[in-house]
């Protein structure tokens, strides 16, 4: 299995992601610098969290136009699975690979804390090892995680089952109190239409062992490894 973690200037969860992938998949991912214009044959590309280009202009805006993203976009169009976490999700929306945009949190502040999100569908290569409706506790760490899309777009992605995770309370109820950043319809993660691309604001790579505060993130990687091997 060949997995690539794409590194942009300002990425800072690239090592964490590589550690998680290696620990769960048993293979070391290749680290691909953003200036690369050609990619080897891949089974999965991961856009890690961080502050690519310092989040200057808009989070993810400049990384979305880096040379490697042209290649990622082309490969994704022909079915390459792509996972974007936090800044990676922002890059995917800026690159037009996922609908909507991630705006400044409604409280205007950076927020780092464990949040509960509900798995909306277990029928995807990213979520098959979760149960639909399962509540997972995974930390967020972002200033721009407030998901926005026009109403018709929201209706469409909901209708097509593209909502992957929603912020919820501990019992799984989707409430305004459990929405940390103001995201439309509490959306924390979305798929593309073919469910081969996932963008997710929380950081599953940070909760893969109890010593670090939990292991709810493991199943996401286990789902992928299971589907791709």
């Amino acid at each position: 299995m060949k997995i690539a973690v794409i590194v942009f200037p300002g990425s800072n969860c690239d090592r964490d992601m590589a550690v998680a992938v290696e620990q769960i998949a048993g293979v070391k991912p290749i680290m691909v610098w953003h200036r690369e214009t050609e990619l080897p044959k891949l089974d999965l590309a991961i856009l890690p969290g961080g502050f690519s280009y310092g989040d200057y202009l808009r989070s993810g805006a400049m990384a979305a136009h880096s040379p490697v993203m042209r290649e990622i976009k082309a490969r994704a169009a022909s079915g390459l699975p792509v996972l974007g976490i936090c800044n990676g999700f922002q890059i995917l929306t800026e690159a037009g690979m996922l609908p909507g945009a991630l705006m400044r949190n409604r409280g205007l502040k950076f927020i780092h804390r464990p949040v509960t999100t509900r798995v909306e569908s277990s029928r995807s290569i990213f979520t098959s090892r979760y149960q639909a409706g399962q509540v997972v506790t995974i930390p967020i760490a972002h200033a721009d995680g407030n998901y926005f899309a026009a109403t018709d777009v929201l209706d469409r992605i909901e209708g097509q089952g593209q909502v992957a995770f929603r912020y919820c309370d501990a019992a799984g109820a989707v409430t305004d109190d459990s929405n940390p950043n103001g995201s439309a319809r509490n959306i924390a993660g979305i798929f593309n239409e073919t469910k081969t691309v996932l963008g997710y604001m929380p950081h599953p790579e940070r909760v893969i062992e109890p010593l670090l505060g939990g292991s709810d993130g493991r199943a996401l990687f286990e789902s992928l490894i299971g589907a791709l091997s």
């Binding site: 090592r15 964490d16 927020i111 780092h112 930390p139 760490a141 950081h203 790579e205 940070r206 670090l212």
Partner: peptide, 14 residues
């Protein structure tokens, strides 16, 4: 205060 700081990046904060 400390919820505005990323405390777990680098994956080793216990």
């Amino acid at each position: 205060i400390w919820e505005q700081y990323d405390a777990t990046v680098m994956g080793d904060t216990i």
